[in-house]
Design a binder for these strands. Sequence first.
DNA 1: CCAAAAGTGTTAGTGATACACCCATGT
DNA 2: ACATGGGTGTATCACTAACACTTTTGG
Lengths: 226, 226
Amino acid sequence: MGEIPKISVAVDITVFTIINNDLKVLLIRRKNEPFRGMYALPGGFVELNESLEKAAARELEEETNVRGIFLKQLHAWGDVKRDPRGRVISVSFMALIDSDKFKLLSTSDAEAAAWISVYEIPKLAFDHKTVLDDALSELRYEIQTTNITLQLLPKEFTLTDLQRTYEVILDTKLDKRNFRKRIKALEIIRETGKEKMEGAHRPAKTYIFKDQKYAPIREKMHVFLK
Amino acid sequence: MGEIPKISVAVDITVFTIINNDLKVLLIRRKNEPFRGMYALPGGFVELNESLEKAAARELEEETNVRGIFLKQLHAWGDVKRDPRGRVISVSFMALIDSDKFKLLSTSDAEAAAWISVYEIPKLAFDHKTVLDDALSELRYEIQTTNITLQLLPKEFTLTDLQRTYEVILDTKLDKRNFRKRIKALEIIRETGKEKMEGAHRPAKTYIFKDQKYAPIREKMHVFLK
DNA sequence: CCAAAAGTGTTAGTGATACACCCATGT
DNA sequence: ACATGGGTGTATCACTAACACTTTTGG
């Protein structure tokens, strides 16, 4: 080859979590130009000897201390002028972390990183607002077609925990009876036999996901007609 | 900046069409190493001054003479060893063209390009088999959630034409009455008032898509529960 | 009048929605 | 005994699926 153009390739990760019944995204305050002092999605450049997924996992670990988590690739952003420093294309990823593990973040030496409500997003560097909006709409789709919420919950959880997760992400109220019927029909969770007692009321049964890894919900979803 | 790694970025396009009731993909026979003589998806490297979409459109036009067509970005492929020449990431796109326009292809000076049935795909260069499989499954999803079939049909078409398109892509037989009921309910097409007479039988009404551009089918699709 | 594709309705079953009360516990 | 959240069933409605005959034309 020889005259093949070379371009810098970055990954940007939209990390979601739920804190206080609010959907939050991890944002980093930039210390350097361009967009110094502005919030941005965590991310960084892809090294020559690592895949896109590896790069995203490495950056996520560097920023949050969280490792081994599921990352979903979303989109490649390639506008010529999206980075004022020069030609940079960015591949975006989505990740979800359990809000318990998030405490690891504050013990890390990551610079000014913060969990920001998706409903109070400040002006972001680069095209990161677009990237984030895309990730959010992808998240809302994913929770309806995969078991991805397992990433947001502790291993054992109650049906109320699960319903709240859906409600927070979809930003709606759901009917308790219908939600339970539907979730049971999807056959993605199983009773543990244990209960969780918490507060002055009847204890709740706890559940675990049958698949402990990300998996599409087998064809309960629209197949078109026959 | 300075020590930011630079990577070659390519686009690869899976172009579908229907010929003789068979779903075909455009493949190019490679004239150069690596994988010389082997079939591959059309594509090429992204220039510094063009977006990913522009690059895909340019490559598509160079290979097929077809321009102004809808291209959908699918995925970024970034394995370290996917190209033996060095580090290359590739962003894949999908395109559909009307089989009438395909004739433009053979009049072009494109080198050995061929429409190959998706059921008879030979060994492909690079990771193009994976890229193609991904595109095919995306296509099957897209025709159920968008009006993308408008790219495959002439402007005016009959319901039988439309049904055959779905059948060929989904590789199933569909019930005529149920298909028509469903399509009407989706409200994506409109009668032209004209008819198409062809052969010794009753003439068929013709239809056009209400949106003449790619559009998602407004929320007839699963919204999850309330 | 025959061949060929176009066009059309009904029924049964399945899944979605709306909705209200009793249960088990701690204090 | 009361406050709190956990847990459950039914009736209606909308959509999906299965299925066969009549219509219009050219030859």
